[in-house]
Every structure is written in C-alpha cells, then in structure tokens.
Design a protein around this nucleic acid. Structure first.
Lengths: 238, 238
DNA sequence: GGCGATATGTGATCGTCGTCACAACGCCTG
DNA sequence: CAGGCGTTGTGACGACGATCACATATCGCC
C-alpha cells in the first residue's frame, strides 16, 4: 500500500490496529468484513477538504487517524467552528442518514487517514447489519451532545472570558495530569479558538492574557498548563 | 380509557390514528406490537415537566400530541430554549442511547399525549428490532440538524433582528400560504422567542416593532403574516 | 365585569466586545 | 541573513444590545 503524506495506511478494518472506542471499530468480525468490502481508504494532507457545506451527501467519512475541523461559514464570510473531530468519529453521518446537504465543511488539520463509504453502500450496510445502526445512533448522539454543549456555551455564557475558560476546561479533558497541574497541547490559533467560542481573535488574545496575569494558566510555546482547575472553573462561572 | 386534561388518549401504537411521519410511527406491525408491549401512555397538562436537565436518563418520551419545550438553564438562571418539539418526535433519545444525563429540560406547552418507554426496555427493543435502530438514528440526525442550525443562528448571525428574521422564516415553514402571504400562528411570547434566538425580551419586542413598521410582517392577535418572504430574507441577511 | 397576573411597548443608560490600525514577534524559505 | 507571511499583543473607538424602570395592553379566572 502506498503511503502518501507520511502516513502508514492501515488497510483492513477487520485487522485494524488504530481501533479507538469509536464508531465502527468495535463491531463483530462479520460486520467489519462487510464494511471492508465497501469502504475506500484514503490519505489526505493537511488542509484537505473532505466535503463542503451545502454539498449533496456523497457518503460518510470515518476518521482513522489525524484531526479534522468541522466548520460553517456565513454569507458575510464569518466562520464558526462546530468542533474538532478526533479518530474514531464519523463525518457526514447526519447528512447521509437524512439525505440532506452537509451542514458544515470538513477540513483536515493534519495528515489524516480516512475511510470513505458511499451513501448507497452505507445505507444498505446499515439495513443489513443491525449492530451498525445502533453504532450509528450512538455516534449521532455524541455529535448531538457536543452541538448542545456549543449552544449552551454560545447562548448561556455571559462573558467572552467565561467562554474561553469553558473551552480550556473542555480541552483539558484530553490533557495529562502532572504535579504542576493539567498540561494541554494547544495547536489552535487564537483566531480558531475565537471561531469556536464565538468571539473575535483580539478578544481571545486579551482574555488569555488576563488569565495568564491571574495565574489561571501558564503558556510555554504550544503547551498550556492549568495549575488549578477549580480556579479556572470559577472564572467560567460553572 | 380515562381522558384527563381534555385529551382523548389513543391506546395502541399499532392502531394509532395520530400517526405523523415521525419516529416510531411507520414501523412494521410486528415492531409496533412490541413497542405497544413496553410503552406507557400518559396524558400531561400544560406546564408539566417530563424531565429535567442533569437527571439520569429514565427513558424516552414519544410525543404523540401537543408541543413540548426543550430548554437549558445556566447557573445564573438564564434560560435558553433548544427547540420546540412537535408530535412524532422523541425526547430523551440522546440521553438514553449514550447513558448520559438529560442535557435539557422538557416542559409541555399545552396538554400533551406522550408514550414513555423505560430505558432498559427501549434498549432491548432497539437491539431486537433493527428497523427501530435505523429510525432512532434518523430521529437523532434531525435533532442534530436543528442543533446545528441553532449554532449557526447564535454564532454567525450579525444582529438580533437578523436572528429574529431567521426565526420567523423558520417558523413560516409550518405556516400556510394565502393570497396575502404566509400565515403563522405565533403562540410563543417575546420572552420565549428571545430565549430561543439568544437575545433579551425587549430586543425582540423592538425588532418585531421595526419589522411591523417596515411592513415586513403584520400581526393580528396570535396570527402573524409575512407578506413577502424575500424581503424578510434580505433582512435576515440570507 | 373586574381584578391580578402576564405580556408588550418604550426610554435612558452603560458595558462588553467587535472592529480598525499598527507594532512586535516567530518561523520558514530562498 | 534578509525578506515575507502568519500569529500575537495592544490601544482607541463606537455600536449594539442587555439591563433597569416604567407605562400600557391583554389574558384568564372567580
């Protein structure tokens, strides 16, 4: 198998080593085999676009490796990031199930390995493999949950700094605990954070600066440290 | 069968006359029969609370008749309406599938007829009836879609009046066309509209007044008329 | 029909945050 | 090392909308 963009492509879902607790990864052997038969494995470089908003749903994308940005853009060119998708998650599932256009655009943030399944193949697969439908429903309910959290953040959070604090606390769930506190690798720019929490780039810069001066966070290059989660939580108004 | 709150309760899903194109309504006879065996039919008065935010998921609620408000509340007491649920839709599906607490509270807006299915019964039902899993996934993808629309409205819409215009256009999809334009029965208060679009009650009143003076809408009691959708759309910045 | 509760309409004020403008870095490439 | 581009830091300004405080209208119920 060819390895573009520095990826080692894993060919078979059945014998996949990347397995996360995600979507299709924990299906039975039989179901995985069926999936292997209809999927197309692809590698993408950073910045590749998997699909764009309003496009008719071609199929679903199972993210095996790498991270993908899901975002929507307004007519005035303002963009809002819905969420960052991690390995094991599925993209475009909602559009395919409901046969509606994709609601958002998906763009890789780094080199990614992705399995593509065509719409018709996927729907047939679902109807033939009951456990896959259940998995799809579970996956959708996660997406729904994260969308609700974003609604809460956008609608119920008073100040911009509170939103930022929420975002940092959210991110910290994937960070590692150390003696000095929680360490997070922060790979997003202030601009992107702003698009995620619904505020301007400058406001993010300022709020983050405020947090630094209040010792709520410490930043060293791309590493962010939260010494005291509770203190940050009170800043978030949680 | 008793008929509290002025409702005629329909006993069986199998022979239900309320059938909308919603969730469980179009399943096969066999599946409907199984559903009949595990569901509990209830009538609720206006203002009844089906479940509250952060409560552990007891089960799902299939709305047969009436409308239900789905909302979240912040610690400061501000509330945000996620959406208004119509007959045929299911409440609490996400929480039950993912075994997470309900993310929102559900309150009836009028007398409602609701089928309740206990979590364990429902999960067993899903695993035994493949078509039901598919329906569940479809239902979830609708909810996701509406949540995304709300994120777009909250995050990408410039002004409060643009949000209101979007909301009115959305509502108008269930209205009826007449010679003078689209007629909508508007049963929500300005306060509630504000909570739905993320602005204050006063701002809604003012923006609506502005629309009236610009002849973008006309209001007569609880009936709202949109003479010219296109004009309102341009106000929404669509 | 009248009363209280709830919904709507309107003015004045003030804070937050978006926007513009530009300076100071850091990073990569030729 | 220079030059250029993307990111970050900071000041000044202004506008939109939240909030408070009322007046008025409408609804629901005894």
């Amino acid at each position: 198998m060819r390895s573009p963009y520095g990826l080692e492509l894993t060919g078979s879902c059945e014998r996949c080593l990347l397995k996360s607790e995600g979507f299709f990864c924990n299906l039975s052997q039989i179901t995985l085999k069926a999936l292997d038969g209809i999927k197309f494995m692809n590698g993408y470089p950073k910045g590749a676009v998997l699909f764009v908003e309003e496009e008719a749903p071609r199929g679903i994308f199972v993210l095996c490796k790498g991270r993908v940005k899901l975002s929507m853009t307004s007519s005035e060119g303002k963009t809002m990031i819905l969420r960052i998708v991690h390995p094991g998650e599925v993209l475009g599932l909602h559009a395919v199930m409901s046969n509606q256009p994709y609601q958002a655009s998906a763009e890789t943030l780094e080199a990614c390995q992705v399995n593509f399944v065509r719409r018709e193949d996927f729907l047939r697969f679902l109807s033939q493999h009951a456990e896959a439908s259940l998995c799809a429903a579970r996956q959708l309910s996660r997406s729904y949950q994260s969308a609700c959290e974003q609604v809460r953040s956008l609608g119920l959070t008073r100040s911009a700094s509170a939103k930022l604090a929420r975002f940092l606390l959210d991110s910290s769930q994937t960070g590692q605990d150390t003696r000095q506190g929680v360490r997070i690798r922060m790979t997003m720019t202030h601009e992107e954070i702003g698009q995620l929490i619904g505020s301007s780039r400058e406001t993010v810069t300022r709020a983050l600066g405020e947090f630094k001066s209040k010792r709520l966070v410490a930043i060293d290059g791309s590493v962010l440290l939260i010494p005291n989660r509770a203190a940050l939580q009170s800043a978030a108004g949680v």
